[in-house]
Design a protein around this nucleic acid. Structure first.
Lengths: 113, 113
DNA sequence: AAAATATACCTTGACAGGCGAGGTAACGTG
DNA sequence: CACGTTACCTCGCCTGTCAAGGTATATTTT
């Protein structure tokens, strides 16, 4: 089962930031990493990915630079900024809060089927 | 900390269905129940609530009828249909799947701060 | 008696994020 | 040389959220 867009909505940027905590990376690779981590149950669509990069860079959460590949397609690498790290912490806490609340709202009903 | 709209997006209908599993209810009360269950960290905005009811009724997940109050404001009660119960099961499973995946994507990075 | 608050419903229009569809370009393989 | 893979990007639509506004009745406060 793959997960639908609206379930992931709002998490895209946090997921990207989490990826960049590990190391600088570029769009294509980040997307492959996400697919691998989720056993291909979820993938960021390219349009979603690149618009998210744009927002994150505009808000100062990430910075970018061109890689110096001497073969193959050019790559734009992204790095997380100190501001981005703070944002990541905030958003991952928000996720943990939301997760518990949504669980309570959805699953409590489920006990009564 | 209250949770933002985009984190809840896509869960609204599932949350409403979960509420209606317990018993028939009406908009105002459902909203109050949600606030109570989340210690007022989350509330459905009225516009969101009523558009969700509309979608759920159009898709056959719920049905509605007017209550026969002899005092106070009129109430439109909603009941979950068999189709709605099936939808609830599907969506709550989707939530459980998504929850694990999002956790993996967001929190794995967090271990490396 | 008037004003304020709570209960209870509903619609309109704007906004933002996701993404389908389309485009560009370099490289490797058959 | 065609095709698949890597790799980037943009435009415009769609959909769910919600601020703002509206209606109506009952209770509580001033």
């Amino acid at each position: 089962m793959s997960i639908t867009a609206d379930l992931i909505r709002g998490h895209t940027e946090t997921i990207i930031l989490a990826q960049l905590l590990e190391q600088d990376s570029y769009g294509y690779k980040i997307n492959k990493a996400i697919q691998a981590k989720t056993d291909h149950k979820y993938e960021l669509k390219e349009a979603t990915l690149y618009t998210a990069f744009k927002r994150l860079e505009e808000s100062g959460c990430i910075s970018s630079y061109w890689g110096d590949e001497n073969s193959g397609a050019r790559r734009r690498y992204y790095a997380i900024t100190p501001h981005g790290r703070r944002e990541y912490l905030i958003r991952s806490e928000e996720w943990n809060t939301a997760k518990v609340l949504i669980d309570r709202l959805i699953t409590d009903g489920g006990s009564q089927i």
